[in-house]
């Protein structure tokens, strides 16, 4: 495979404990993959390795045919990789819009030098439904807006691969509805965008992603089309079993 993302035998160890153990999966170009798993199963660790913040002990990450091993974290945005954080990483003294614009500083080198005006920070904030907070500080905006601002910032570099770490965590039911609408809005405007969505809300993931990968204690226990994976017994036991108790035997 030449486009999209390919992860091969990725192993990440923290003081002797494997947070990721020989994980392999791939995401085709334009595919939205949901990465799910219980708390501490290694989802954020996976995103940190993919974005270069962590250096894996073994394995490789290949994006659009390029091995990212030697690419520093801050240079990966130029390869078209962009991400958000589980806990919003926004500069407290910058407005929401200024924070969003930070993402526009380093567009991928392959991108056209001047992006269309329709992809301005203000425009993305409007599409994501939080333009009224553009001139607010993060601390003055609801948590949901802060999380969407992270998404908008990640989109400013016109990425080909977007990694979202639990965008719905901490959001109210209403904000979740807005988030799903916003993500669908992204898909409408960026049909070729490849997405890796880490999320606990399986319903939300299933409504957006055509493929799933399931981590449990650092191991990949299932990977494939969403419906197939959700029907998988091992997945039910390891993860979904804790949620849908109706078929669990006492």
């Amino acid at each position: 495979m030449t486009t999209g993302l390919e992860v091969r035998d990725l192993t990440m160890t923290f003081s002797g404990v494997d947070a990721l153990a020989q994980v392999s999966f791939s995401i085709g170009e334009g595919v939205w993959l949901g990465l799910i798993g219980p708390n501490g199963s290694g989802k954020s660790t996976m995103l940190n390795v993919l974005s270069g913040l962590y250096r894996p002990r073994a394995g490789s990450v290949v994006m659009n045919g390029h091995d990212l091993q030697a690419v520093r974290a801050r240079h990966r945005i130029r390869q078209g990789l962009s991400r958000t954080f589980q806990h919003p990483q926004l500069a407290a003294s910058l407005t929401i819009l200024e924070n969003v614009m930070v993402g526009a500083a380093h567009r991928p080198t392959a991108e056209a030098p001047s992006p269309p005006a329709s992809d301005s920070g203000a425009e993305w904030l409007r599409r994501l439904g939080c333009d009224e907070y553009a001139e607010h500080l993060p601390s003055e905006a609801p948590y949901g807006v802060q999380k969407l601002a992270e998404v908008a910032r990640a989109l400013m570099s016109a990425p080909s691969l977007l990694l979202l770490d639990e965008p719905a965590a901490g959001l109210s039911a209403r904000e979740r509805v807005d988030l799903v609408a916003a993500l669908k809005e992204i898909r409408r405007h960026r049909p070729t965008l490849t997405l890796c969505l880490v999320e606990h809300d399986v319903g939300l993931v299933a409504s957006l992603c055509s493929e799933l990968a399931v981590l449990s204690a650092g191991r990949l226990i299932a990977n494939g089309p969403t419906q197939t994976v959700l029907a998988d017994e091992a997945v039910k036991v390891a993860y979904l079993g804790t949620r849908s108790t109706h078929d669990a035997t006492p």
Partner: peptide, 12 residues
Amino acid sequence: GEAELAGTTTGI
């Protein structure tokens, strides 16, 4: 100063 990780992932 305030969001170093975000700086790194946005190329700073």
